[in-house]
Design a protein around this nucleic acid. Structure first.
Lengths: 162, 162
DNA sequence: CGCTATTGGTTGACGGGTCAGCCATTACAG
DNA sequence: CTGTAATGGCTGACCCGTCAACCAATAGCG
């Protein structure tokens, strides 16, 4: 039956699958274009954006992680690759020998400065410009709601806890 | 300036980043849960859903691809792995020696039958139930609009064409 | 017919992410 | 202090997807 709790109605199914498909197709396209004309992957772009929004392009790695909601190994792997390409540099933090500082190099700043305008233009063309201002606000509201809900969820745990 | 065409206003930025983040967090969570209690990855689940919706669980590989909007190598790699695990089987098509038939094995049908209810429940909890029916319809409308727009876009081409 | 283009599919190398496990350092309790 | 926990970060193995190159079969044109 269409209203059974563990099944989706056609209305719900269309929204869910549509949303899934939209995001896979949209990001596939955007990431392809981004990579093609700037040489940056989506993750690299994201990271450079956050860094470049910070004064001096310097911030503790852990702050970066919590801002991007990334796993620690993800940031670590990416930083290694980006450091090799000269986009960022690592510095040690005298206050805490564990933590590391991530620094935007001139080359890194240059990369994001060159890549951003075209990318933003495409985001506009393929997403923003297709919506009314009201729809934009609804998307924002839904996103915030879902994210808040997810944040309140208990973490995943193995089948052995009290 | 905030209204410069190649830049996003705060309103637009919130919608765009929110949408990005929502989807990364939501699918991270759903895929983790799915994998944990069914052993299926998101792609495997998607593929099995399409197959199981087909009578007899048999369909030409190419149809699968166009329905999922996947690259051909993606399907090929995934099929190899799933065949090894006994979830699907390949058969040759007598009508066209190039094409291949993908068949759901009993084991594959079993896997999707077991995995679906829990997964759907979570989609409901973390997404559907957080929205009003009107919002659901708006999400559907936006997705369809964006997908239609993307479909009309010319393919990516190297910088050497007329 | 025969040649070329197109189509369906595979493969291997690679970039990317997760996971589990590790190490060093700091925090904190007794 | 001292031992234990928590934190910040790194690494290696593995899964996954893209890309480019390839191959076989078919279509379709001369």
């Amino acid at each position: 039956m269409a209203t059974e709790p563990s099944w989706l109605s056609t209305r719900e199914d269309r929204a869910w699958r549509g949303s899934l498909r939209m995001h896979s197709q949209l990001s596939a396209r955007l990431n392809q274009d981004l990579l093609q004309d700037s040489g940056l992957s989506a993750s690299e772009y994201e990271m450079l954006v956050v860094l470049s929004e910070h004064p001096d392009g310097r911030m503790p790695a852990q702050r970066l992680r919590s801002q991007l909601l990334w796993e620690k190994s993800r940031l670590s792997h990416l930083m290694r690759r980006m450091e090799q390409r000269g986009l960022i540099a690592r510095e040690s933090n005298p206050a805490d020998a564990r933590s590391a500082m991530v620094c935007l190099t001139p080359q890194g700043r240059n990369a994001i400065t060159e890549a951003a305008p075209d990318h933003v233009l495409r985001v506009r063309q393929h997403f923003i410009d297709l919506m009314t201002p009201e729809e934009l606000d609804i998307v924002t509201a839904i996103s915030d709601r879902v994210l808040a809900h997810l944040a309140e969820l208990p973490e995943i745990e193995d089948p052995a806890d009290c």
